[in-house]
Amino acid sequence: MKNKKKVYTLGPKGSFHHLACVEYLGGQQEIEFCESFAGVFEAVRAGHLGWIALYNSLAGVVENHETEIEKNFTLLDEMDYEVKLCICAAPKTKLKELTKLYSHEKAFGESKRFTSEKLPKVEFIKCPSTSHAAQKVAQEKEENSAAICHAETAKFYGLEILANIPNKRKNETSFGLFAG
């Protein structure tokens, strides 16, 4: 992309929004993070570009933003990004010893078969995103705790991958780049 405007997306660093945006842009743009979709829309109204998830092949519409985008913005392009989940934790943590698992509720749903089989007694603790979960596990270094997130997210926070969660069906999220 030749346009050097900042691109605003949901964070923190390592979120699926961030990872997909980096892949789409090829690292050529400056990426800023917002805590909400409303924050992304506000940045686009101020003249920047926005990048948000539109649709997931397993969960359906991510948030109902189509009307807002069609009415107030121009959708410039879309890209599908494969969702791959893993369980990650601080170094030396063992999968079979986990007692707490942090993640976004959609990630819990997408990994239910795996976690009920491998971790039937683990406590599930909801976070705003999978990247927030990884960040929390990395910062708190709580014994026997882990996060469900993307493998690249685990790397951002110095976590080790304990298990990859297999997808039974193709799991992709469609992201959109839009402007004011």
Rank of each mutant, 00 (worst) to 15 (best):
M1K: 07
K2R: 09
K4R: 15
K6M: 12
K6Q: 13
V7C: 00
T9N: 14
T9L: 14
T9M: 13
G11H: 02
P12E: 00
P12H: 13
K13L: 15
K13G: 11
H17M: 05
H18D: 15
A20N: 11
A20K: 14
C21I: 06
C21T: 02
C21D: 01
V22E: 15
E23T: 14
Y24G: 12
G26Y: 01
G26C: 13
G27V: 03
G27K: 07
G27F: 04
Q28E: 11
Q28G: 12
E30H: 08
F33P: 08
F33K: 05
C34S: 04
G39R: 13
F41S: 07
E42A: 13
E42R: 15
A43V: 04
V44G: 13
V44C: 08
A46D: 10
A46H: 05
H48W: 00
I52E: 08
I52A: 08
A53T: 08
N56W: 07
L58Q: 09
A59C: 09
G60D: 02
H65T: 04
H65M: 06
H65S: 15
E66F: 12
E66W: 04
E68W: 01
E68C: 05
E70K: 06
E70I: 06
N72G: 07
F73C: 01
F73D: 05
D77T: 03
D80H: 10
Y81V: 09
E82N: 14
C86K: 04
A89G: 04
A90R: 05
K94D: 15
K94P: 06
L95S: 10
L98D: 15
L98A: 09
L98G: 10
L98C: 05
L98T: 12
K100N: 08
K100Y: 15
E105H: 14
E105F: 12
K106I: 04
F108P: 00
G109S: 09
E110K: 15
E110W: 09
S111T: 08
S111L: 03
K112H: 02
T115Q: 13
S116A: 05
E117Q: 12
E117D: 05
L119P: 06
P120M: 01
P120C: 01
P120F: 00
K121N: 07
V122L: 02
V122A: 01
V122C: 04
K126T: 14
P128D: 07
S129L: 00
T130D: 03
T130E: 12
S131Y: 11
A133T: 02
A134C: 00
Q135L: 11
V137W: 07
V137C: 10
Q139N: 07
E140R: 02
E142Q: 05
E142A: 01
E142Y: 03
N144S: 09
S145G: 05
S145E: 10
A146P: 13
A147I: 03
A147H: 10
A147N: 11
H150Y: 06
H150L: 03
H150S: 12
E152N: 05
E152R: 14
E152A: 06
T153A: 04
T153C: 08
T153F: 05
F156A: 12
Y157H: 05
E160V: 07
L162D: 00
A163F: 04
I165A: 04
P166H: 09
P166Y: 10
K168I: 12
K168W: 15
R169N: 14
K170I: 07
S174R: 14
F175I: 00
F175N: 11
G176Y: 00
G176E: 02
G176Q: 02
L177R: 12
G180H: 01
G180E: 10
